[in-house]
């Protein structure tokens, strides 16, 4: 039984404590924007924010973050998230789309910590998010575009 605050709402999860947050979000809360891609923290499709920092939900047992604050793609707010999602749409980053929730989470986390990232900063922050469609050229461009929007 783990208690979490998910997207601003307090929830008590009646699942085994070793249940990965990913499956609790999807199966218990129907928050399906967070995706399953590998289950071993290699692809980043399951990235959410836990206590404000990006986290791979597939290797995060709910019991290990008892009392934590979880934010998923469905509730991403704030200037960075907005700038990222607008940039993503404006230059049509997504292809199949499966990985993009995770990409958006990682990009938002980067911009929250670094408003003017270089190409290298982007590579370092985003290297854990696999896109099998290889939309990487546009991901990089969209993060730069979002950074420009934020700088005004």
């Amino acid at each position: 039984m783990a208690k979490l605050t998910v997207n601003g709402e307090e929830v008590t999860l009646d699942v085994p404590e070793d249940t990965p947050l990913l499956w609790a979000l999807r199966d218990e809360m129907r928050l399906t924007g967070t995706k399953f891609g590998c289950g071993i923290a290699q692809c980043g499709a399951c990235t959410v924010m836990v206590d404000g920092m990006p986290r791979r939900s597939c290797v995060t047992p709910v019991g290990s973050i008892d009392g934590g604050f979880v934010e998923t793609i469905e509730a991403m707010e704030g200037p960075e998230a907005e700038a990222v999602q607008n940039a993503w749409t404006n230059i049509d980053v997504p292809q199949c789309g499966w990985c993009q929730s995770g990409q958006v989470m990682s990009a938002t986390a980067l911009l929250r910590m670094n408003r003017v990232p270089t190409d290298e900063d982007i590579d370092n922050a985003m290297a854990g998010n696999i896109c099998r469609c290889a939309t990487y050229v546009r991901i990089r461009r969209a993060i730069h575009d979002a950074a420009e929007t934020l700088e005004g």
């Binding site: 070793d18 289950g39 986290r55 985003m126």
Partner: peptide
């Protein structure tokens, strides 16, 4: 780690067994 992907992005407070395979 780097901003946007720190060690804690993947590594928690304890070892976590994979649920889909070995390791």
């Amino acid at each position: 780690g780097a901003p946007g992907m720190q060690c804690t992005t993947c590594h928690g407070a304890e070892n976590v067994a994979f649920t889909t395979g070995e390791g």
